[in-house]
Amino acid sequence: LQAFIKTLTGKTFTVEMEPSDTIENLKAKIQDKEGIPPDQQRLIFAGKQLEDGRTLSDYNIQKESTLHLVL
């Protein structure tokens, strides 16, 4: 599935991932794409901060969901 990552500066980019991917995997993909170390990334979806060990499906993240990236 493709999801949108929106930063506080208003920049939006897309990442490809599977519902079974962990938040940790997602942070690694963001690092590959944007060069931001995972330990500096905080991802917010539906008002909740996402925990590394959980999966996208745990948070009911669907295709074309928008996640907010806070540094």
Rank of each mutant, 00 (worst) to 15 (best):
E64V: 07
I61W: 08
T9E: 11
Q40I: 11
Y59D: 01
T55Y: 08
P19V: 10
L69P: 00
K29S: 04
G10A: 03
L50T: 03
Q62L: 12
Q2R: 14
E51C: 07
H68R: 07
D52V: 05
Y59I: 07
T9G: 13
G10V: 03
Y59Q: 03
T14N: 05
L56Q: 01
I36L: 05
G53V: 06
I36T: 08
I23Q: 01
Q2N: 10
K27L: 02
L67A: 02
A46F: 09
A28E: 09
L1Y: 10
Q40P: 01
E51N: 06
V15P: 00
F45K: 03
A46M: 14
T55S: 10
S65A: 13
L8G: 11
D21E: 09
K11W: 11
F13W: 05
N60T: 06
T12L: 10
S57F: 09
K11M: 08
S65Q: 09
K48E: 12
T12A: 07
D52L: 05
S65V: 15
K33Y: 08
T14E: 06
T66V: 15
F4H: 12
I23P: 01
E64G: 15
G53R: 09
Q49E: 15
G10C: 05
L69S: 00
L50H: 01
V15R: 00
S20L: 09
D32E: 15
K48R: 11
P38D: 03
T7P: 05
I30N: 01
A3R: 02
K27W: 02
L50Y: 01
G35F: 04
D32T: 11
K33S: 09
I23A: 02
T66A: 06
F4I: 14
T55M: 10
E18G: 10
T7R: 08
E24V: 07
M17S: 04
Q40F: 09
Q2T: 15
A28V: 11
P19D: 09
F45D: 00
E51V: 07
K27H: 01
F4M: 10
D32F: 10
I36M: 04
I36V: 08
A46N: 15
K6T: 13
R54I: 05
V15G: 00
V15M: 06
Q31L: 10
P37F: 04
L56S: 01
I61R: 03
Q40A: 09
I30D: 00
G35R: 05
G47W: 04
Y59V: 04
P37D: 07
T55A: 07
R42T: 14
